[in-house]
Write a protein that binds this DNA or RNA. Structure first.
Lengths: 345, 345
DNA sequence: ATGAAAGCGCTAACAA
DNA sequence: TTGTTAGCGCTTTCAT
């Protein structure tokens, strides 16, 4: 037989539909007897709430869409884990989409996928421009992660990427490294993470009175270990002799270290390597990987916090406050890949 | 102003609501003129479909719930990536839950989270028993991954874990290894992956005329690199001298290799290491990791296939066919962690 | 090819 | 404390 509805439960318990609804929603003013009777009827019939009906009525779905480039890049997996946990704490569930760096998918996400089944959106964009974010009437409340898209268009959570890159570079300079390359530029994307971090790198060099050459930013196809390995291969094949690598994520760094190893170069003695993100792989690699560790818990917590505020703002139809910019902490974790090599300058 | 509804679009375009609906759903018999007019009205008003309404009416949500233990374990992240991709191909979206190995969460998932907002469920269980899966009237169609829960209770996709473990063990034996430990037992779980793989290990030993001792199965708290490292630490501290390790996932293996390195033991010369899952970390580690590679694409594809069949079965109210058991391919990828060490027997 | 009316399952507003 | 009524936005008959 068909699945039971509130009506069926009501009939069985000898009460009205509204009373059943009250019980389901833990409404305070229900007598103990009625409550028990309804509960029994629910159990006997195996009744479950139909969320479509509830959503339609309430105007909220309880779903947050999380949109990331690729879920199988550990940084995003870590983030997703934390965001799902944080969402659960807010009685929300998380629907995950992957853009695979496709601009159209990112735009579709921005528009709520042509529908409005998510109450809110957490988006880690790669290709979006400031203009994409302007004028999205009816689009769901949105929090952006990671990129410094032109500020002021939507709520945004990130670490101070410029400073983080500067600190990482200073660290390499203090080890006496002078031939530092940066791995992780992306072709054809908006000024994003790579550019901001590159600026930090440049600032560190210039503060040390050293020259800066835009050619030290090596482009990659993707942000995986393979791409880091390929970048190093190209670099070495070109006859360069790096003594430091600033990799814009840990996967790139791990791939780079593997390639250096295959070329007979020692890390950190010959080449010191620093990554970004603090993923598990870098904690157990040989050598372990120095990395810029963002406070991922904070990213998740703040993102949810901002989003929940926006969602209630929309619900109450109140005034729309201007976009918020939130910076979370990071720290440089010095590990074997850049350790104990003293000054060689 | 409030977000536009079909009614508003209809009024603006001078047609009925039904006609707007026809246009939205690409119904064939709509005149070109009408279609254009409606499209214009939609654009002008910025109309988007309200999925709550659609879901309620259609009785389907287009959402699949994916339930995994932890999304930040690369194997599950890989799987999630592929399942999301495959779901998209089937015009479904994926909602991700994490059980964090909590039995109550797994049970809640089985019951559709006390509601029915997902059309179907893909679940990678750790603690469920055969009884949990019996008699779930009204529960959503379900496909189980990975565990060999007692068969015949629900659709199930997995590799042949027993054979895979046997092959991996044979490989270690052929290298002349005789003191092989297995890392990855779990306390207090139902006979699952660990037990099945352990059986394969045993079978390989016995086929080679070697004794088998249940004590070679080392328990772990979790399936992360840290746990692999700790297991090796305990083993070495106990004065054992393993020459082979069969780790039940790659994270455990990578952690184990790191600990072996810290103890001055060489991989593979002193200890050969094999993992399961073929995650990216093992392809770029030093040494690279020999692993049992399941055909993850096939897992995702078959899981979706089974689920979509079940969903339409339910929709059409047709006969319920018995649970299907599907085995997907795997292969042993021999890499540096178990390579070129000849016979040492 | 298009329209009118009914109803999916639920809960808010109001009434008793 | 509990019941009645209405309606959320959409699509499905069934007419025309």
């Amino acid at each position: 037989m068909a699945r039971p509805r509130i009506k069926d439960v009501a009939r069985r318990a000898g009460v009205s539909e509204k009373t059943v609804s009250n019980v389901i929603n833990d409404y305070a003013h229900v007598s103990e007897r009625t409550r028990t009777a309804v509960r029994e009827a629910i159990d006997e019939l195996g009744y479950r709430v139909n969320l479509a009906g509830r959503h339609l009525r309430r105007g909220r779905t309880g779903i947050i869409a999380l949109v990331v480039p690729e879920l199988d890049i550990p940084y995003f997996a870590d983030l997703a884990t934390l965001i799902i946990t944080e969402a659960e704490r807010n009685a929300m569930t998380v629907l995950v989409h992957q853009t695979r760096e496709d601009r159209r998918r990112e735009l579709a996400a921005l528009e709520g996928f042509g529908s409005d089944f998510a109450d809110g959106l957490i988006l880690s964009p790669l290709t979006l421009t400031g203009t994409d974010l302007r004028d999205r009437p009816g689009a769901p409340p949105t929090v952006l992660l990671g990129e410094r898209v032109r500020p002021g268009q939507a709520d945004h959570v990130a670490i101070d990427n410029e400073r983080a890159a500067r600190e990482a570079t200073v660290h390499l300079l203090e080890l006496g490294r002078r031939r530092i390359w940066v791995i992780g530029g992306k072709e054809g994307t908006e000024p994003g993470t790579a550019e901001v971090r590159s600026a930090g790198h440049r600032a560190a060099l210039e503060a040390a009175g050293l020259p800066w050459d835009p050619a030290v930013l090596l482009r990659v196809e993707n942000f995986r270990a393979l791409d880091g390995a390929l970048a190093v291969r190209r670099l070495l094949d070109a006859g360069e002799t790096p003594d430091g690598l600033l990799c814009l994520n840990d996967q790139l760094a791990l791939g780079a270290m593997r390639e250096l190893h295959d070329r007979g170069l020692r890390v950190p003695e010959d080449v010191a390597v620093v990554g970004f993100d603090d993923v598990e792989g870098g904690r157990f690699s040989v050598p372990s990987l120095t990395t810029v560790a963002p406070d991922k818990h904070a990213v998740a917590r703040v993102a949810l916090e901002l989003l929940m505020v926006r969602i209630s703002e929309r619900d109450t139809g109140g005034a729309i406050t201007p976009p918020r910019e939130r910076v979370v902490a990071h720290r440089l974790l010095v590990r074997e890949s850049s350790m104990g090599t003293g000054s060689r300058a």
